[in-house]
Structure formats: C-alpha cells, structure tokens
Design a protein around this nucleic acid. Structure first.
Length: 376
RNA sequence: GGGGAGAUACCAAAGUGGCCAACUGGGGCAGACUGUAAAUCUGCUGUCGUAUGACUUCGGAGGUUCGAAUCCUCCUCUCCCCA
C-alpha cells in the first residue's frame, strides 16, 4: 500500500491524497461506508460503485467470523469474491464489538472472551487470531485488536486499557509479520491509538503507535459519547504525533460536521454507520441541513428529496413519497434514504478534497458547517 | 316475524360498584441513533401552555348509590342465527 499527499491546505491541517491498494486507488479524504456483514445495509454493490461512488468499504471481523464463518469465506476465496466487490475493503478487528457487547465479554491478558450474540457459543479473540481471521477475510486494510474504552472512563481504567491495547498491538504486529496474505495481494495492518479523553494518555498512545512502521494509523475510542470538543482536542493532540506522510483513520466518525472538523485536523479516512442507520430511521443529510423525513411537515411536500443532490434518487423521488415509504416501513424507503445519505457523505468528502486542492477549503468548510447543523 | 349478542378514546380491544382519565395492540405525533446484536429504541397520544392539580368522558335520557364505564328503566343503533 502506498500513500501520496497531493496537497496540503494552507489554512488548516487538511490534506488531499491518494492511497494505492491492490484493489485500486482511494482519493482522500475519504468516507468508507460500513458493510459489517459483507453488505452495506440496503445498498447493493452496483449502486455503491456507480451512484454512491464508494471507493472502499468496511467489513467486520466479529460478525463475519460468527456468520457465515471463516470456512465459507475461505472457500469463497475471501470477502472480495464472496460479495463480488473488487474495490478495497477494510475490516474492523472486532475491538468495537467487544466494547459494545459488554454484557457477555471478559477481557483477559490473552484476549477477549465472549459469547456469540447469535447462538451463545463461547469464543475468544486474541491479537493473533484476529490477524489470522482478517487474513482469511482478505481485507486490504486490517485493524489491530484493541479495547475501545467507553465514555465516561476513569483515568486508571483508561490507562490500563491503553497499555493492554499496546501489548496486544505488539503481539498483533508480530503475527502479521509472521504470516502471509492468502490470496496473492498485499494487506496492510493499522494500529490504533487509544487513551480515552486524557491528553497524556493520547500522547503516550500516539507515540507508541507511531513507533511502529505501518502503512497507516487509526484513532479509536472516540465518538463514544464524549462532547465533540473533547473529541476534536484528542484528534489535535494525536495528529501532532502520528507520521505526517501516512493515512490517518478516525474510527467510527461521524456526523457530516464531525467529518469536516476531522479533515481540517488532518484526518484522511472515516467510517460511520450513521448515513445508513440514521437513513433507515428517517434522517436525511443534505447540503442545506438535516431532514427528519418522518415529520408530518413533509407529508405533502412534492419537491425533490434534494435539488441537485448527489444521487439519482434525489431528483427522482419527492420528499412526500420518501416519507410515505419510510413511515410505511417499506424496504424501498430504507434503500433510498441509505443511497441518498451515502451519496451525500461521499460528495462531502470529495468536495472537501477538491477544495483542499484549490485552496478554498477553510472558507467552504465553515459555510458548510453552518448549513449542516440546520434542522429543516 | 322469532331468538340471541353487543355499543368503551382515531381504530381494535380489556375493564363488569371505589385502586379508572380507563390495561394492551395498532395508528398518529415527536425524539434518539457516531469502528451496526438496530428496517431499531424511547417518550407523548381526553382538555387545561407545566402539574403528586383541575375539568369533561365509556351509545342517549333518566334512576339507584356516599360513589357508576360497571347495577336498574326506557330509547337509539349494530351484528348473528332461525323463518
């Protein structure tokens, strides 16, 4: 994997670049639609490429490991072939699942012991077997196994957790270096910064992570409920330390505003379930603000979902029609909303990239942030 | 013509003397959702701008009772069965 920075913004820390993977190039900054189970919920692969213009998507180690299971994925020849997706894939390691499925998990030095949410069967994830699993999945970018601390999180726990994540990182990298890709193309391994909302922990973690030579670096443990200003502060602190010439991935973020603020702070990659999940639940992100399409005020509004929007659905269907579909729980409603939101997110980062290159990013970003916060 | 059952809030449906402004569903309205156990979850849904408060409700009109959606009388309407 290679990363070329094409332009730095003059007014902010934003950068525009290009990642080259075995499955093609990724223009950054980029938003990566989340496809946990080998499916971006509600959007098929063809639309992802041609309408959303997704350049890379996510898969999830935890979910794919439990179902369909590694035997199936391996027999298919990896996740790319299984889901017929020829562009890059990044897999999350399952660290977030261990955090969000708190009820059944037990963290030990060797790894995370947990019960399947599907059938209750007991499993263990270790830094090593998570690498092995991601080798089988065959993602272009695989993630270290970390603990994503909740918020709030007291200092002592955050520190111990971070140290555990670092020890796990060391083991994960070792396993990654000892093993080879299974399908004839390269994979990259991203370590993850933790440290909750504590400056000194974030600094220590970023320095530890940066000491490993890697194709890219991730920031985890944010957007878990902390005030956004704390999140922005942590990004600033960490990005001072992470290598300037490597992609930085802010995990799980976020709202359109979060993404613009992240870009301005030097983040290159984002992922979030928000455009799809919130879309399914009736929230639409547009250039003029947020629409709750379920609200009765759209009932007889026959104007397009979004004039000059990023997706074909924006002009094809009216707000009144989409509202009807969502309110009626029609599957098509979820599909249209997901397509719209993802297209908007991809438009947003593409436009940011263009603005960074032509030097108008800072002004544009501030104008957009004003508009994006509006509730229509 | 004969016999039977029933009318409760937007709909469906509990409740058959006080704990009932009335269970529960649905519908409606609003909110939440950030590395997806989420096509999910939460709140409100008689009126009074808030309320451990006030007021008006259970087909209609009377009545019994300290007290009625619940008991009695009459009326209106609906449904079912037999001719």
């Amino acid at each position: 994997m290679n990363f070329e920075i094409e332009a730095f913004d003059n007014d902010t820390k934003a950068r525009a670049g290009e990642i080259t993977t075995s499955h093609g190039k990724i223009k950054t900054p980029i938003f990566m639609p989340v496809g946990t189970l080998g499916s971006v919920k509600g959007v098929n692969q063809r639309d992802l490429i041609h309408d959303v213009k997704a350049q890379i998507i996510l898969g999830n180690t935890y979910h794919l490991f439990l179902r369909p299971g590694m035997e199936t994925i391996q027999m298919a020849g990896g996740l790319h072939k299984f889901m017929n997706w020829e562009k890059p894939i990044l897999t999350d390691s399952g660290g977030y699942q261990v955090f969000s499925l708190a009820e059944n998990r037990k963290l030990k030095e060797d790894g995370a012991h947990f019960s399947s949410h599907i059938d209750g069967s007991k499993h263990i994830f270790t830094p090593e077997n998570v690498v092995d699993i991601q080798r089988i999945i065959g993602a272009d970018i695989i993630m270290a196994f970390d603990e994503c601390t909740p918020y709030p999180c007291d200092y002592d726990y955050a520190k111990k957790s971070m140290q555990l994540t670092h020890r796990w990182l060391n083991r994960g990298i070792k396993r990654f270096e000892e093993t080879d890709p299974m399908y004839g193309y390269n994979q990259s391994f991203f370590p993850i910064v933790q440290g909750s909302v504590y400056n000194d922990l974030r600094i220590e973690s970023a320095e530890t992570i940066a000491s490993y030579e890697s194709d890219g670096y991730a920031i985890g443990g944010l957007s878990v409920g902390e005030p956004v200003d704390e999140m922005y502060d942590m990004i600033d602190v960490v990005n001072e330390i992470l290598p300037k010439n490597k992609p930085r991935y802010l995990m799980g973020v976020g709202t359109p505003v979060n993404i613009l603020e992240g870009i301005a702070r030097g983040i290159d990659m984002f992922d979030c379930v928000m455009p799809t999940r919130n879309g399914r639940n009736g929230m639409l992100f547009t250039r003029d603000g947020i629409i709750n399409i379920k609200n009765v005020k759209w009932k007889n509004d026959f104007t397009p979902i979004e004039k000059n929007g990023a997706s074909f659905v924006d002009e094809s269907f009216s707000k009144a029609y989409l509202r009807h579909l969502i309110v009626s729980k029609e599957i098509l409603g979820a599909q249209i909303a997901s397509l719209h939101n993802l297209s908007f997110y991809l438009w947003l980062v593409t436009e940011a990239r263009n603005r960074i290159i032509d030097g108008s990013f800072a002004k544009w970003k501030n104008e957009m942030i004003q508009k994006l916060a509006v509730r229509l």
